[in-house]
């Protein structure tokens, strides 16, 4: 399942909702991304997340389905927020549940790595010198590339 929303989310509640009623789950992995304070406490460093409504949901659903094809998952949940966020706020959450830990941990890493390089979100940071668009990092492409299957460019 995926959700794209303005509002905050409760990780504990999402975990309970994913696992309740499924005693086949033996491992639940999570990743939660937070807004980092880029100004080192020296002034405002909030950011605004813009996204492409429609394509975002489509991309996240495709990535989620790919994770279920690659690993024996009992469940998964991805939430990504948009709008203005302050340092310390939650931006993104990935949960994956499986019978065993390895599938849960690997698929969770896969989902966040692919999300970062594929899902159409853009961060606009507020800095003391004005608003500035965050540039994509080559290291994110490297992280995502380790999940590429031979013979594909994804």
């Amino acid at each position: 399942m995926i959700r794209v929303q303005r509002e905050d989310f409760d990780v504990g509640e999402e975990m309970r909702s994913l696992t309740t009623g499924n005693t086949g789950i033996g491992g639940l992995a999570s990743f939660v991304g937070l807004v980092r304070d880029m100004a080192g406490g020296a002034g405002d460093s909030a950011m605004t997340l813009e996204h492409y409504p429609g394509m975002t949901e489509r991309l996240l659903t495709e990535i989620d389905e790919e994770a279920h094809r690659r690993w024996p998952l009992e469940g998964s949940m991805m939430i990504h927020r948009h709008g203005r966020l302050e340092p310390g706020e939650q931006i993104v959450m990935v949960l994956t549940a499986s019978a065993h830990r390895q599938a849960a941990l690997d698929s969770c890493a896969f989902l966040i790595d692919w999300l970062k390089t594929q899902a159409p979100f853009w961060k606009l940071e507020e800095t003391p010198d004005g608003a500035s668009w965050v540039e994509a990092r080559a290291s994110d492409d490297v992280a995502a590339a380790r999940w590429a299957k031979p013979g594909t460019d994804g």
Binding site: M55, R58, H80, V92, L115, K116, A119
Partner: peptide
């Protein structure tokens, strides 16, 4: 139409075409 395209992907007037910088979510 909300799917990543390549330079040689064909387009016509009925399509939705989006242009954007490399993504920076997550």
């Amino acid at each position: 139409n909300q799917t990543y395209a390549k330079p040689d992907t064909t387009v016509s007037n009925g399509d939705e075409v989006a242009l954007f910088p490399p993504v920076t979510g997550g």
